[in-house]
Structures are given as C-alpha cells and as structure tokens.
Design a protein around this nucleic acid. Structure first.
Length: 336
DNA sequence: AAATGCGCCAACCGCAATGGA
DNA sequence: GTCCATTGCGGTTGGCGCATT
C-alpha cells in the first residue's frame, strides 16, 4: 500500500541521492527531457522509482532553482500568501520563482511559524494570539450572564473574604469589597459552580495550561483558612492564579503569622507579566518582592461541598477552567 | 571525549486528481 | 462508466549536524 507501483517491480534504492545518481539523472533529463517519469529511471540507468526521480529533479537538480537563504522580501511574501492560501504550498511556490513547494513548506514549519508566534501572531489564523488577558475578558463576559450566581448573602462572610475581587485598578485584593462573583452550593439544587467542581473531580484534563484546583486548609485553632486573601489592614501580600500561590506569608487578624511558605512563592516568578505586577514590600522585618494578580483579571470562583465554614477544603478555579467546564457542562447535559 | 537533545530539511508516504485505454 | 497507471500535493519521517551537558 502506498508505494508507487513501479517500486514493486525491482529492488529500488531509497534515501539520499549520491552525486553519481544526480549526475545520471541530470544528464538524462538535460538530453532527453523527463517525458514519462516512470520510464526515466530505467532509461537513465537508476535504481530508483520514477516518483523519486521526479522529486529529486524538482527539488534539487532543476537548473532554475534559486539556492540559499530566503530574502526578507521572500519571507514577507510567503507570510502574505500563506495568510491568503493556507498550506497550499505548490500555489505559494508559483509566486516565488526558483523556490520549491517543499523548500517553502520546510522554511515555514521550521522558521516562519516560530517567528510569527514570537511576534504574537497565530501562524494558522494570522491573527493575534489570544492572551490570557483576552481569554479572561471573554470569560468575564460569559460570567456576567444569567448562568452565574453573583455574590449573595448565601455565602459565608469568611469564605466571601477568601474570594474577593477588587475592581479598583492598582490595588491589592480587598476582602468584602467589590466582590464580583462567588459561588455557593446548595444542598438541594446544584449550582453551576457545584457542577463545575463535580466535573473537575471526574475529568483530569483541562483546556487551560494551569492546574485546575487548589485546596484551602482550614486552621481550626485560628478559625481561619490557610491561603485566603487577607484584609487590607493586615498588609499581607498573597494571591492565587489557578492553584499557584504567589506568596504564602500570611497574618491573621491579630497580626500573627499563620503561614510562611516561601517555597510555593517561587511559582509566581514564572507567571506572565500581564497577570502579575510586582511590588517591593517591607514588613515584619522582612523585605522582598511581592506579586499581585492584577485586579482586572483576578476573578476567582469558589466552590465548596457545603457552605459551612468548617469544611476542610474548598476549591479555587482558574477562570479558563470555569469557561471550559461551563461550556462542557452544556454539552454534557445535552448528552444526558 | 562521549552522550544526549534538538532543529533542520531532504526524502518518503499516502491520498487525491488526472488521463488514457 | 470503470479500471489502472501516472502525476501532483501536503503531511510526516528520519538522519545529519550542531549545541549542550
């Protein structure tokens, strides 16, 4: 299957062409033209199939081939033509004299694609790549729709604090201010959030690049949640994105240190700049760099199996996960 | 110096289109 | 209309050479 019929007739060479083979093929075609490709190898004295000869001629031996690196003009033209024609390499090649479709295709796959991505352009669509921020804007629109339960009195005050979003630019997250969206569970009617959390428990993959869930550990003796966003007055710098914890230094309402987990703090260094901004801090005789999730994109959604404060864990969802699971909820419910 | 990883690109493979018997 | 050889195209592979460990 697949191999050209002429290849079965005799044992034929494959792989790279030797200079001797090139010479035979070049000599033959120069004198007689290629005619019927299937007869070329026999007449030229080559142990190759006609298809292989044709390819060698077109891609390498043809006298009108332009060799060497692509010029800037050629590069621009390829990008332009690819935007219009897609992967129609042979059609693109007709507009670049001396270049073969194979050559252009290789150049595209090994070089131009990367170049475009570096410029923030999607090489398939030739449109700007969708950034996290853009994605979150889309999600934000979705979540302002009626399917979302906005923050209400159903949610316990302390849990509320853990999920507060500030809409004030350039500020830290403030508990109980400008709460955007919080989810609560109900013992009778599952909310969208409950369904999402349930799905996350059963599905291991996600469309987003960040992990899906994060645990909140309840600290009973302090009646406080580890990893929660503190009050402004505490001047504590901590933030989440997905389950990545930016800075775990945390002080409770009595100004006592609850958690000091700098190991996890390392994670924030890999976060893209459009998500975080960094600030010098100097508190508790400790100086360092702190990260803040920019308020515009700092919208997180909490789901818990109950709304009780004593629940040991609660889940934090990445916005992209919310979108992904929301859309799949619809599909799943259609299937049921 | 040897081993390993990685990018590039020539060549191959499979399939669709074409054309002639 | 059907079959089959041939051609053309685009995706994929594998080997070479260079860089890094």
């Amino acid at each position: 299957m697949g191999r050209h019929s002429c290849c079965y007739k005799q044992k034929l060479r494959k792989g790279l062409w030797s200079p001797d083979e090139d010479e035979k093929l070049l000599n033959y075609i120069t004198r007689h033209g290629h005619g019927c490709w299937s007869s070329v190898p026999k007449l030229a004295g080559l142990q190759r199939c006609g298809k292989s000869c044709r390819l060698r001629w077109i891609n390498y031996l043809r006298p009108d081939l332009k060799r060497g690196a692509f010029s800037q003009d050629e590069e621009s033209l390829i990008i332009e033509l690819h935007a219009a024609l897609g992967n129609r390499w042979s059609q693109i090649a007709t507009r670049l004299p001396g270049r073969t479709d194979n050559e252009i295709k290789n150049f595209w796959n090994s070089c131009l694609k990367k170049k475009l991505r570096r410029k923030g352009i999607d090489p398939t669509t030739h449109k700007p790549l969708i950034t996290d921020l853009q994605t979150l804007n889309v999600i934000n629109q979705k979540l302002t729709s009626s399917e979302v339960i906005k923050s209400t009195g159903l949610i316990n005050n302390l849990l509320d604090q853990s999920m507060v979003v500030s809409s004030q630019p350039g500020t830290w997250w403030y508990p109980n201010q400008n709460a955007a969206f919080c989810f609560s569970s109900s013992t009778t009617t599952p909310t969208v959030s409950d369904q999402i959390v349930s799905l996350i428990s059963s599905v291991s993959t996600s469309a987003s690049t960040t992990p899906m869930t994060s645990n909140f550990s309840y600290v009973p003796e302090l009646n406080y949640y580890n990893n929660t966003v503190p009050s402004q007055s505490n001047s504590i710098y901590s933030a989440f994105f997905g389950n990545r914890y930016t800075e775990a230094s945390q002080i409770n309402n009595n100004n006592n240190l609850v958690v000091d987990d700098h190991a996890h703090g390392q994670d924030m260094k890999s976060w893209p700049s459009e998500i975080l901004h960094y600030t010098e801090h100097n508190q508790s005789s400790e100086t360092g760099l702190e990260a803040e999730v920019k308020p515009d994109i700092a919208k997180y959604y909490l789901g818990s199996s109950t709304s009780s404060l004593n629940e040991s864990t609660a889940r934090l969802l990445h916005d992209a996960d919310v979108e992904w699971y929301s859309s799949n909820l619809q599909k799943l419910s259609n299937m049921c």
